[in-house]
């Protein structure tokens, strides 16, 4: 195995473009190094991106927060402006693993590991986050939901890596939330995860909504029917019932010892309802 620590994006993309098939990007390493312990896993090249300028920083433009691909999740909750703007995203990212894992794991890594149960991903999708993808032909942006394709597979092409995640600065009267179900009380993998983002008008009517489900399909699901169920409402009981039904219907989970299909579909609805209430309150609505 070769280990490279490029200092520019150009060098990193060149390394990845000209690399053998078994080439991996190293950000926090909390997934990659675990895989490297397996005897049947072999990396020919590991490209550590953390020495590239800006990669371990959270910066702000006029319109957005830009979270570098190497920013550990523990650093998200230390950024008061980010927590105030996107509490649901930060809470979701902070659910990943232990204190020790939080010190290293990244949202970009969580996304690129392409586990359907990744906690930060439904929250990012609900938030409408974009990824900046560096590649041999330059920079492109994509919606977070377009990155994972199936368990372990992403839409990134050879030579490409995620440089940063962009979260738009929210306007007034908007709020987000993420909830998950796990069989233990803490430190477990989501059986169902739900991210919700709502925008309200001055009267408390939902004008915009994004609802994303994790762990109930091969990739994160953005459920338009669930958003349609609450847009134009004041999140009354009828709207919440319709939201829950839409989420349960959209879920296509696996059946395993951690949760049956029936259970996971039911819980998708229950959590969507609860997360929507939290997002609504955070957006300044009162029920």
């Amino acid at each position: 195995m070769r280990y490279e620590r490029p200092e520019t994006i150009t060098d990193a993309t060149a390394l990845l473009e000209n690399a053998p098939d078994r080439a991996f990007v190293l950000a926090g390493g909390t997934d990659l190094l675990v895989r490297m312990q397996n005897d049947d896993f072999e990396a020919e090249l590991v490209v550590d991106i953390k020495s590239i300028a800006g990669m371990t920083e959270i910066s702000e433009t006029q319109d957005a927060f830009v979270v570098g691909a190497g920013v550990p999740c523990a650093a998200l909750s230390e950024n008061a402006a980010l927590v105030a703007a996107w509490p649901g995203v930060v809470e979701a990212a902070n659910l990943i693993g232990s204190t020790q894992i939080q010190g290293r794991c990244t949202m970009a890594g969580n996304l690129c590991n392409a586990s359907p149960a990744a906690d930060s991903v439904p929250a990012l999708v609900a938030a409408g986050a974009q990824v900046r993808i560096a590649g041999p032909s330059g920079l492109r942006t994509a919606a977070v939901e377009d990155v994972p394709q199936s368990p372990g597979k992403t839409s990134l092409k050879k030579g490409e890596f995620i440089e940063a995640i962009e979260l738009a600065k929210p306007g007034p009267r908007s709020g987000d939330a993420y909830l998950r179900f796990i069989p233990r009380t803490e430190m477990d993998i989501a059986v169902v995860g739900v991210g919700v983002r709502l925008v309200l008008d001055d009267a408390g009517v939902v004008t915009s909504a994004r609802i994303a489900l994790g762990a109930v399909g091969p990739k994160v699901l953005l459920v338009k029917e669930a958003a349609d169920a609450v847009i134009g409402t004041g999140l009354d009981d009828a709207a919440l019932d319709a939201l829950a039904t839409a989420c349960s219907d959209a879920a296509t989970p696996i059946d395993d010892k951690r949760g049956t299909v029936e259970f996971r579909k039911e819980v998708a609805g229950v959590l969507a309802r609860r997360a929507a209430r939290i997002a609504y309150t955070r957006a300044g609505g009162s029920q």
Partner: peptide, 29 residues
Amino acid sequence: CGTGDCGACSTIMDGRVVCSCLVLGAEAQ
């Protein structure tokens, strides 16, 4: 465990507690 689950290998790197089994030696540069 050697896979980041047990915390026995905890060390502090640049002020953050991490599992040293999930850090490459080369990353300590």
